[in-house]
Design a protein around this nucleic acid. Structure first.
Lengths: 138, 138
DNA sequence: CTAAACCTTCATGTGTACTTCAAGGCAAGA
DNA sequence: TCTTGCCTTGAAGTACACATGAAGGTTTAG
């Protein structure tokens, strides 16, 4: 398929796909006789994977290093493992921050109509309790 | 406390704290007679909250809108609720993407020494299985 | 009284991750 | 043949989130 179709299927712009290829986040894409990209399912999966990682907050640079390790058949293996573990720790912290923020929002929404009905002072007291449990945020 | 101490306590640069104030992510900070910022615990909590949301991947703009709703005593309440719910949905998707990425990494690490011992072909087969279960990533 | 170590505002610079533009090639339909 | 619609590369532009620098003010130590 051509790049436009790949763009439509993945929701990633053509320009971004070219960019990802240039930055080696996806493998080099085969070309037709005239030089146009011919994208297959394998590339589509890679694009979706990159999108997922990007949405999760991973930088292009980290992703490139990660994918390099992934594809490498070399053997600085212990160093590789250390890098993967480091990346994992970063992502877990990010997820936990996100979860705390989600809890925060859910609390707000759960008490939303309370909020509409009650005074600011009452709500602040309620929230203070919540925050004390949640250990000091905002 | 002065801005430098606040910076040290929160791990957020002085410049970033000034920026957050300007962008209304934290309340207007009291000044001393000579015009220096005098930061209290309430502000510190706000800074930490902003940091957490930023780490979780929330943009400055989204955060500002969120905090506005938070602090408002006005009453476009149903619209407000809709916005909070929207924000929540975005964050949950982000968290799920992150979790998928973490699963991916954990799989890699769990099979890391397998990888060292086994051939590429064997590992790819193993991973294909894993991916099939995880429903089509990379 | 002068230097160090804070602070202020305002302006400009920087890195990331793209997006957009310019200039041109190829293939199909009117 | 010419317009439409796709594609190519390379360069330049853009948005966000700060970082850095300039020019100057105040307090504290020597």
């Amino acid at each position: 398929m051509n790049i436009k179709e790949a763009s439509q299927k993945t929701g990633v712009s053509s320009a971004a796909i070219r960019y990802y290829e240039k930055e080696s986040l996806i493998p080099a894409i085969d070309r037709t006789e005239v030089g146009n990209r011919d994208i297959d399912e394998r590339i589509l999966r890679r694009i979706r994977f990159v999108t997922q990682m990007r949405n999760a907050g991973m930088s292009i640079e980290s992703l490139r290093r990660y994918i390099e390790l992934f594809d490498a058949q070399e053997d600085n293996t212990n160093e590789q493992k250390a890098i993967l573990q480091e990346q994992l720790a970063v992502m877990e912290e990010k997820r936990d921050d996100l979860q705390a923020a989600i809890d925060h929002l859910n609390f707000k929404l759960a008490h939303f109509y309370d909020h509409m009905a009650s005074t600011e002072a009452e709500l602040r007291a309620l929230e203070r309790e919540h925050q004390d449990k949640l250990n000091d945020k905002m």
